[in-house]
Structures are given as structure tokens and as C-alpha cells.
């Protein structure tokens, strides 16, 4: 059994750790809330632009509306944007998304390139010798649209230049404080019919098939909307991942705090026992000493 002094030291260090994890938990909890608000705030734009896209797609007589909407016949290489965290201490958050991504793309029939958002994902991919063509790390804690728009631009550039025939986005969907699931979705080419059920209610308020007037022309408008829609999707998914990261960290830190508390009560008990033992021993010593002394005086 360790000495009482050693135990006191251990108790103190466990206490300190529990304070740190407690603080991290509180910080993450407030960050989740803020990020969720930002996700909500960007939803109207995504919904509205999606609606306008649908209107455009429903216009008769346009089979190949825009290069970003066309599925390529031969898939020679794909690009994956992997969104992970910059920091650890978030439970299995980083591991889960990387594992899900690798599972899908490890045996892909064509070369796969990666753009990583977040340091952890980058490190894990590099360790596995994946081809990372760009990385975006150290985003601000609360990224604005401007902060992430280069990511979407880069994806579009890779796609339009023909270096990538499909672009996927791997992010973590925030379902609740305790449930976050890794999702891999196709970003480009944009699939209009496939997603139709996604944002119901909002996009069917208008079923007019009336023909639009375009200023300056249809292609220009479509171009602008598609570019922005892609950008806002990337933005939303990054925010969604961020919310998941903070939630995962909060839960992980709560467990850590709980564990520290368990450990602490065990240690405290042991320490008290040891202390009590020492006192009993001392008392025995004193009593023994007194006894011996009394015996000696009686005999003498």
C-alpha cells in the first residue's frame, strides 16, 4: 500500500484533472449551442437556393443544364473532402469519420485524392499514405461563410478542370448531444432528382411550371446559384461536423469527470483508512509505551 503522502499527492492530481475536464465540458456545451444556431441560420439560404435550382431544373427542354450537374460516364478519379477536428479529446469523433471514409474509399476502383479539413484527419490520412492534395486546418472556432468558401471553390475547380470526376464530402451529422453519425455524401455532380425528397414542405410551395424570364440569361443564373449552393452546402456540413465535435468532446469530458470522481472517492477511502490505521498504530505505541513504563515503575 502506498504511503499516506503518496496518496495525498494522487488525490490532488486527480482532483485537478477533474477540474480541467469539467471546464472543457462546460466550454464544449456552450460551443455546441452556438454552432447549432449558426447551422439553423444558414438553413434558409440553402433551402431557398435549392428551391430555385429545382425550378430551373423543371424548366422544359434542358437535359444538360450545367457542367456541374452532369454525371460523367467514366469515373477516373474521385476527390474526398474529409471534415475532422483540429484537436483530440473528443472521444471517438475523429476516428469514426476517418474509419467510415476509409471503409468506403479504400477499395475504390479508381485513384482517390483527399482534401482534409482539420488537423486530426490530415494526420491520420498521411499516416496511412493517402494522397492529400490540400488541407484546411485551424479554422476559427466559429467559422463564417467567408472562412470556408475556399474549400468549396477548390472542390469545384478540381471537378470542372476534370482532375476529379466525382467529389464526396465526409462529415459528421449532428443528430443529438449523444448521437453523431459519420456521413459521406456526393457533393458533385449535383444530383437534382435524387435529393428531391430531402427538403420537402419548403420546396413544393410553388408548383408553377410557368416559364421564367431570365436576366441576363439562364446559364449565368444557374452558374451563380450552383456555385453558391455548393458553397453553402460545404459550409453547413462543416458547421454540422463542428457541432458534432463539440458534442462528442462534451460527452467524453463528462465521462472523464465521472471517472475522476469515482477514482477520487476510492482514493479518499483508502487514504482515510491509511490515516486511521496510522493513528491506531500510534495509539497502540503510546499505550504500549505507557504500559511498559508503568510495569517498570511498579517493579522498581
Amino acid at each position: 500500500m502506498p504511503s499516506a503522502r503518496e496518496m495525498r499527492l494522487r488525490i490532488r492530481s486527480v482532483k485537478n484533472i477533474s477540474q480541467v475536464t469539467k471546464a472543457l465540458e462546460t466550454v464544449s456545451a456552450s460551443k455546441v449551442r452556438r454552432v447549432i444556431q449558426a447551422v439553423m441560420a444558414s438553413r434558409p439560404y440553402a433551402e431557398k437556393s435549392w428551391k430555385v435550382l429545382l425550378h430551373l431544373a423543371r424548366q422544359p427542354g434542358h437535359e444538360s443544364l450545367h457542367p456541374l450537374l452532369n454525371e460523367r460516364e467514366e469515373i477516373k478519379s474521385v476527390l474526398v473532402i474529409l471534415v475532422s477536428g483540429d484537436r483530440g479529446l473528443a472521444g471517438a469523433y475523429n476516428m469514426n469519420i476517418v474509419r467510415a471514409t476509409l471503409q468506403q474509399f479504400n477499395d475504390f476502383p479508381c485513384p482517390v485524392e483527399y482534401i482534409t479539413v482539420g488537423r486530426k484527419g490530415r494526420d491520420m490520412l498521411l499516416r496511412r499514405r493517402k494522397k492529400v492534395i490540400a488541407e484546411f486546418s485551424s479554422l476559427p472556432a466559429m467559422p463564417s461563410f467567408m472562412d470556408v468558401s475556399p474549400i468549396g471553390r477548390m472542390a469545384i475547380e478540381e471537378f470542372t478542370s476534370g482532375r476529379a470526376d466525382q467529389v464526396y464530402l465526409a462529415y459528421t451529422n449532428f443528430k443529438s448531444m449523444v448521437v453523431q453519425e459519420p456521413v459521406i455524401r456526393k457533393l458533385l455532380p449535383l444530383e437534382i432528382s435524387h435529393n428531391e425528397g430531402k427538403l420537402t414542405a419548403h420546396n413544393v410551395t410553388h408548383t408553377t411550371h410557368s416559364v421564367f424570364t431570365y436576366e441576363p440569361d439562364q446559364n449565368e443564373i444557374l452558374n451563380q446559384i450552383i456555385l453558391r449552393f455548393t458553397g453553402v452546402q460545404v459550409y453547413q456540413d462543416i458547421l454540422e461536423s463542428l457541432a458534432s465535435e463539440h458534442a462528442a468532446r462534451m460527452v467524453a469530458m463528462r465521462h472523464a469527470t465521472d471517472n475522476a470522481m469515482d477514482l477520487l472517492s476510492g482514493l479518499q477511502l483508502d487514504y482515510n483508512k491509511a490515516r486511521q490505521q496510522a493513528i491506531t498504530n500510534d495509539m497502540l505505541d503510546i499505550a504500549g509505551g505507557a504500559e511498559a513504563l508503568a510495569k517498570a515503575t511498579r517493579q522498581g
Partner: peptide, 19 residues
């Protein structure tokens, strides 16, 4: 401020998309 000039939109305007 439409790309082809400033325009005023009143109710029952015909469908239009503009930058």
C-alpha cells in the same frame, strides 16, 4: 438592383430570375 438595371417588383409580376 438587377443586373440589367434597377427594377420595381409589384404584385403579380411575371416569373423572373435575375442576378
Amino acid at each position: 438592383p438587377g443586373s440589367a438595371g434597377v427594377m420595381g417588383i409589384l404584385p403579380n409580376h411575371s416569373p423572373l430570375l435575375t442576378t
